[in-house]
Simulated scan of single mutants.
Amino acid sequence: MAIFSHRTRRKRIADTNLRLCMPELKDDERDVLIRNIIYSCGIGFFEGAVALWGPAERLKNSYRINGLEHLHAAKAQGKGVLLMGCHMTTMEICGRILALHEKFDVFYRQDPNPLLAYMLVKARESYNGESIISVETLKLARNLKAGHIVWYAPDQDYGIQHSIFAPFFGVQAATVPGTGRFAKLGNALVIPFLHFRDADGRYSIELKAPLESFPSGDDLADSTRINKIFEQAIRKQPDQYLWVHRRFKTRPPGEPSFYSK
């Protein structure tokens, strides 16, 4: 019963998010998309296990990757890279795939379960660089200045204390302005890291050119620009985004919650 309740709650959250972000969808179109989102989350769970604890050989010939030259050019310049991604359900498996080509650190929010947190760090560091907890911002800046590549996903709601409000699919969303701030602190380039699961069962990874004139010095302009990049990526494969997250949990003062309890 608890599992069913949890699944139903996640479906309600996804439904709310899609009504806000894709109001052009008809009811039946949204229902189909929600089913595909739940299915994609399930696939992502098993892909994550393969990524974290499976042999690398299982990933060979399972992907396409474009844009590695941008990472190589940054390394040749001695520049650190903030590898900016969002929470697609392919994030764990495609992170493992990218690690076959370039090692990178991971900037992450620590799991509250100590045992799981330990297992995740141990697994990721077996094939990647350092795991940097989200409170270790000085370590992040040092690693970027030292020329490290650091993966960072700033697309979730971290509360009003750490955020500013910027549009995401036309809705004001609590957005962490860390991308621009960390890039400035670490004198680093920002390279968008996009990843998708294809219909043929393979994965597509796209590393875009470094963002130009970034950071601009304007947190709102920079956060709006980042959210727009994520919007464009999500629209390519909307069923693969983590819509079950309460992206709009934090509201501007005076605005009611979008989510039922």
Rank of each mutant, 00 (worst) to 15 (best):
residue 220 L to S: 03
residue 182 F to T: 07
residue 132 I to W: 03
residue 131 S to E: 08
residue 133 I to N: 12
residue 191 I to S: 06
residue 183 A to F: 04
residue 142 R to W: 05
residue 203 Y to C: 08
residue 84 M to Y: 03
residue 204 S to H: 15
residue 93 I to A: 05
residue 101 H to F: 14
residue 221 A to H: 08
residue 90 T to E: 13
residue 188 A to N: 05
residue 186 G to D: 07
residue 178 G to Q: 08
residue 102 E to N: 12
residue 135 V to Q: 13
residue 178 G to S: 12
residue 184 K to T: 03
residue 213 S to T: 10
residue 214 F to W: 09
residue 200 D to Y: 05
residue 149 I to D: 06
residue 126 S to N: 08
residue 170 G to S: 02
residue 162 H to F: 12
residue 203 Y to R: 11
residue 95 G to D: 02
residue 194 L to S: 14
residue 111 D to T: 11
residue 161 Q to W: 06
residue 220 L to V: 11
residue 181 R to L: 14
residue 120 L to M: 15
residue 188 A to K: 03
residue 168 F to P: 00
residue 150 V to Q: 08
residue 184 K to H: 10
residue 152 Y to L: 05
residue 80 G to P: 06
residue 108 Y to A: 10
residue 152 Y to M: 04
residue 187 N to Y: 03
residue 133 I to L: 07
residue 164 I to D: 00
residue 121 V to D: 13
residue 88 M to Q: 14
residue 179 T to S: 11
residue 155 D to A: 06
residue 120 L to I: 14
residue 103 K to F: 07
residue 84 M to Q: 11
residue 145 K to N: 12
residue 189 L to C: 07
residue 129 G to D: 06
residue 206 E to C: 11
residue 227 N to E: 02
residue 114 P to F: 04
residue 179 T to C: 07
residue 178 G to R: 08
residue 213 S to A: 15
residue 136 E to L: 08
residue 145 K to L: 12
residue 136 E to V: 03
residue 175 T to C: 01
residue 206 E to G: 04
residue 134 S to Q: 13
residue 189 L to I: 07
residue 131 S to I: 05
residue 132 I to T: 05
residue 152 Y to R: 04
residue 134 S to M: 13
residue 107 F to M: 15
residue 142 R to H: 10
residue 228 K to I: 01
residue 120 L to K: 11
residue 121 V to M: 10
residue 154 P to F: 05
residue 184 K to Q: 14
residue 182 F to Y: 12
residue 213 S to E: 15
residue 210 P to D: 02
residue 129 G to H: 04
residue 148 H to Q: 09
residue 183 A to K: 03
residue 135 V to T: 15
residue 108 Y to K: 04
residue 97 I to F: 10
residue 144 L to G: 05
residue 196 F to H: 12
residue 152 Y to P: 03
residue 186 G to E: 06
residue 228 K to D: 10
residue 201 G to A: 06
residue 202 R to Q: 15
residue 216 S to G: 07
residue 167 P to H: 01
residue 168 F to T: 00
residue 191 I to P: 05
residue 113 N to G: 03
residue 113 N to E: 08
residue 193 F to R: 05
residue 119 M to E: 10
residue 172 Q to E: 13
residue 91 M to P: 01
residue 120 L to G: 05
residue 182 F to Q: 12
residue 191 I to D: 06
residue 100 L to M: 15
residue 167 P to L: 01
residue 173 A to V: 00
residue 216 S to A: 03
residue 209 A to Q: 10
residue 80 G to T: 10
residue 181 R to I: 14
residue 218 D to C: 01
residue 199 A to T: 13
residue 115 L to M: 12
residue 220 L to P: 01
residue 149 I to A: 11
residue 107 F to E: 09
residue 103 K to M: 11
residue 97 I to H: 07
residue 184 K to W: 02
residue 195 H to E: 07
residue 201 G to P: 04
residue 104 F to W: 09
residue 128 N to G: 15
residue 158 Y to T: 09
residue 133 I to A: 15
residue 162 H to W: 11
